[in-house]
Nucleic acid binder design. Structure first.
Length: 494
RNA sequence: CGGGGCGUAGCGCAGCCUGGUAGCGCACCUGCUUUGGGAGCAGGAUGUCGGCGGUUCGAAUCCGUCCGCCCCGACCA
């Protein structure tokens, strides 16, 4: 395979490769503000597809969309002790509402107008639990007002020290579901229901296999009783948290006086859940499937599933192949295939091949005079460049099959990669060795917070998840030697 | 916040050491020939050399200072 220009090979420098792919495939670009990025049309269309599919799944499970404001009173954040602990260090604060032009060293510049200083400063939401449960409290009086099943699509800001395109940016796009229930049982069900929605979406749409389960107290959401997650494995052996679902218990309802009167006339605090996935999923997509030639996109999320490259040598052929390409494209679109005809005359076919490969289009159709003469078209897979000649008449049906197969292969490959790097270890030496090798590591753990901190300190690995189906398997903790009742999953993570 | 690197044309870079008024590749524009794996030839356009200050007859180049970005670590979805 020829290597795309300007893309650092994965084997040489994985981090550079990732950045090169994102920039060169025009998913995103750096913004003038540190840590922020511009999501370009190709990247944004991926997010739009994610939004459309997830939104449908949220609606199917009974949720409604709403929108809560970007600004939150500073005092709100302080109402839940753990929550403030977790987020205080990364909040952007609004202190003034106006700028004022001032002369400085003979130049005009702008400064916050001292006269416009806010009495109560505002924070830019790092997440919206506080304002949402404040509002829920206003709306809920009776058990008949429950459950509330709400979701919002929004941007949030977390002032991170180190950022990476899509994986961690100062501002990012996400959805946050927030619900309120009359019983803890119901809230727990909701938490797990939405985690399952995320699992299905990751595996079936993004072709990203995930482990599902519980976070340790150390890794859970600030303010939650329990955090559940979907955890994916990237090609370089590092894990990526791809989505979280929180059982908030009554922590926020107590802080925000979210109470309801039950059928027995008694007042109770409501039980809350929240759950979210973000534009980080775009990064997960890139790091799960792409290669040294650029992006590889799963058909079910790809903005363009099939690109037709017409080939000609003269004007007559140009007219003929373009007409055939456009006719075929029409039939493909009718069949539900997102199709693009690349009719540009200023670049040659080889350039187009390379460019669409860089952008991750799953299947390419080469359509030239030789194909037309045989009433066929050549399908080429983005995965391995394997070629499949198709009769033009039956092409739509065959392409739907090929796209399905492509989707399956991507998932299978990712799953195989994950399983082949998965290790079970018995002692600390094996553990450290496995961490260096990368991948998920199954090890007995005493589940003590200080030991978890020590493990992270010494190995850079963290507990990613305690999988749902984890059986009891008593033995000594891999680090402390204290009794451990089961194994948990460790890895180095993004 | 610590360590490292880098700011020169849209992008990638050379020039800086040893001061003399800015260059290469790609991209872009025009024309012709091309087109089944990133085309060729010819012509053309493009710069407050990150900002400010200093040294000097003269600064991209030397000195000071500020700013910004990227990478690596501590924090995190």
């Amino acid at each position: 395979m020829t290597v795309a220009k300007d893309i650092t090979p994965r084997a040489e420098d994985y981090a550079r490769w990732y950045t090169d792919v994102v920039l060169r495939s025009t998913l995103a670009d750096y913004s003038p503000v540190k840590g922020c990025m511009v999501i370009r049309p190709h990247g944004y269309s991926l997010w739009e597809n994610m939004q459309r599919i997830l939104d449908g799944m949220f609606k199917e499970t009974g949720h409604e969309n709403a929108y809560f404001p970007l600004f939150i009173p500073k005092s709100f954040l302080a109402k839940e002790a753990e929550h403030i602990e977790g987020f205080a260090k990364e909040c952007a604060v609004i202190t003034h509402t106006r700028l004022k032009a001032v002369e400085e060293n003979g130049k005009t510049t702008v400064r916050p107008d001292p006269d416009s200083q806010l009495d109560e400063e505002l924070i830019v939401r790092p997440t919206s639990e506080t304002i949402i449960y404040h509002m829920f409290a206003k709306w809920v009086k009776s058990y008949r007002d429950l459950p509330i099943l709400m979701n919002q699509w929004a941007n949030v800001v977390r002032w991170e020290m180190r950022t990476r395109l899509f994986l961690r940016t100062t501002e990012f796009l996400w959805q946050e579901g927030h619900t309120a229930h009359a019983t803890h049982e119901e809230a727990k069900e909701e938490t797990l229901r939405m985690l399952e929605v995320y699992r299905r979406f990751a595996e079936e749409t993004l072709a990203v296999p995930v482990l599902t389960g519980l976070k340790t107290d150390r890794e859970k959401f600030a303010g939650a009783l329990n955090t559940y997650c979907i955890e994916a494995m990237m090609q370089d052996g590092r894990a990526l948290q791809a989505g979280t679902s929180h059982d908030l218990g009554q922590n926020f309802s107590r802080a925000f006086e979210l109470k309801f009167q039950g059928a027995d006339s008694k007042w109770n605090y409501a039980w809350n859940t929240s759950w979210g996935v973000s534009t980080r999923l775009v990064g997960a997509l890139v790091m799960s499937h792409s290669d040294d030639d650029g992006l590889v996109l799963p058909p079910r999320i790809a903005p363009i599933q099939v690109v037709i490259v017409p080939i000609w040598r003269n004007e007559e052929q140009r007219v003929q192949t373009l007409a055939a390409a456009s006719e075929l494209a029409g039939r493909l679109r009718t069949a539900g295939v997102a199709t693009r005809v690349d009719d540009r005359d200023n670049v040659n076919p080889g350039f187009k091949y390379a460019e669409w490969e860089l952008k991750g289009v799953p299947l390419r159709l080469e359509l030239g005079p030789r194909d037309l003469a045989k009433n066929s078209v050549m399908a080429v897979s983005r995965l391995d460049r394997s070629k499949t000649p198709l009769a033009i008449d039956s092409a739509p049906q065959r392409l739907l099959e090929l796209l399905d197969e492509f989707q399956r292969t991507l998932f299978d490959n990712a799953l195989e990669r994950r399983e082949s790097t998965r290790h079970s270890v018995e002692n600390w030496d094996e553990f450290k060795e496995a961490v260096e090798a990368g991948g998920f590591i199954s090890a007995r753990f005493c589940e003590e917070d200080d030991v978890e901190a020590q493990i992270q300190e010494e190995s850079k690995a963290t507990v990613r998840v305690i999988p749902f189906d984890t059986p009891d398997d008593p033995g000594p903790c891999v680090r402390s030697g204290r009794p451990a009742k089961r194994r948990v999953i460790f890895a180095r993570a993004y």
